[in-house]
Simulated assay, not measured.
Amino acid sequence: MSGATEAVATRDADARARDTDTRARIVATAERLFREIGFQKTTVADIARDLRMSPANVYRFFGSKAEIHVAVARHLMGEAEAAAQAIASGPGSASDRLRALVLGNEQMNASRYLADRKMHEMVEAALEQHWPVISEHIDRLDAIYESVVASGMESGEFAKGDPRLAARLVHLSCIRFCHPRLMVEYADRPEPTSAQMIEFCLAALRAGVEA
């Protein structure tokens, strides 16, 4: 690679890094403002003003306010997926990791969405409007659950079977403990608890799940 070509490549890499950093700052600022004044009330002008840039510059990175909404949702869900993946890849039996997955997801969503009404409104909109990011998030979590169930089947901790089906059954059985809307609707129904439900699911996994 010639010196001139290398210099161009370096400039391009630096420009991409700056763009990535700017996008991240826009998303972080939008998330904070959503929490403070609500995602519907927050305007692109508000975000730009907080970042000391023009709205036109924000639109250079996001084509619309809706794209910013999705980026914030993807960031929040990405953090949940990373936490779940860390549990799934961590130490402990498959049963212990499944317990930690369900309880950890419940605690994270409760602190993020139940205790923060403004962020809960954004999640409600995402669910009602069927944002693709929601389905993608569920698919990623299904895959994480499947990896834990498969490891339990391989070790003999769980009965042999279809790990994909078994994982989806477990995830769906425990959905009311992590789904923001269902967490609100069932708040006044203390039982079954998430701990009781996961023990029920673990008993089913040990006994075997018929396809």
Results as ranks from 00 to 15, higher is better:
4 A>Q: 12
5 T>F: 02
6 E>L: 15
6 E>G: 12
7 A>Y: 09
8 V>C: 00
9 A>V: 03
12 D>K: 14
17 A>G: 03
21 D>Q: 14
23 R>W: 13
25 R>D: 15
26 I>Q: 01
31 E>F: 08
35 R>F: 12
36 E>S: 14
36 E>L: 13
41 K>G: 15
43 T>D: 10
43 T>N: 12
44 V>A: 12
46 D>W: 06
47 I>E: 02
50 D>Y: 09
51 L>W: 10
51 L>C: 13
53 M>H: 10
54 S>Q: 11
56 A>N: 09
57 N>R: 13
58 V>I: 15
59 Y>V: 10
60 R>F: 15
61 F>V: 03
65 K>L: 11
67 E>F: 01
69 H>G: 01
71 A>R: 02
72 V>S: 03
73 A>E: 05
74 R>D: 13
75 H>G: 04
77 M>S: 05
78 G>D: 09
78 G>E: 10
78 G>A: 09
79 E>N: 04
80 A>Q: 14
83 A>N: 01
83 A>Y: 00
87 I>W: 01
87 I>Y: 02
88 A>V: 07
89 S>W: 00
90 G>F: 11
91 P>M: 11
91 P>Y: 04
91 P>D: 14
93 S>W: 05
93 S>K: 00
97 R>W: 10
99 R>G: 03
100 A>F: 01
101 L>Q: 07
103 L>C: 08
103 L>Q: 12
103 L>A: 06
104 G>T: 02
104 G>N: 08
105 N>E: 05
108 M>N: 04
112 R>F: 09
113 Y>V: 08
113 Y>I: 08
114 L>K: 03
116 D>H: 13
117 R>K: 01
117 R>S: 11
119 M>V: 07
119 M>H: 12
123 V>G: 00
124 E>Y: 02
124 E>F: 05
125 A>T: 11
127 L>S: 12
127 L>A: 08
128 E>D: 15
132 P>T: 08
133 V>L: 06
135 S>I: 04
137 H>F: 13
138 I>T: 08
138 I>Q: 08
141 L>H: 12
141 L>N: 13
142 D>C: 03
143 A>F: 06
144 I>M: 02
148 V>M: 12
151 S>P: 03
153 M>D: 09
153 M>N: 10
154 E>I: 14
157 E>R: 06
158 F>G: 06
158 F>Q: 04
161 G>T: 05
162 D>P: 07
163 P>F: 02
163 P>S: 10
164 R>V: 10
166 A>R: 04
166 A>N: 06
168 R>W: 02
168 R>Q: 15
170 V>E: 06
172 L>G: 04
180 P>H: 05
182 L>E: 05
183 M>H: 02
183 M>Y: 02
188 D>Q: 15
188 D>M: 15
189 R>G: 00
191 E>G: 01
193 T>C: 07
194 S>I: 05
194 S>K: 06
195 A>Q: 11
198 I>R: 01
198 I>H: 02
198 I>E: 05
201 C>F: 00
202 L>P: 05
205 L>T: 09
207 A>Q: 13
208 G>P: 08
209 V>C: 07
210 E>F: 10
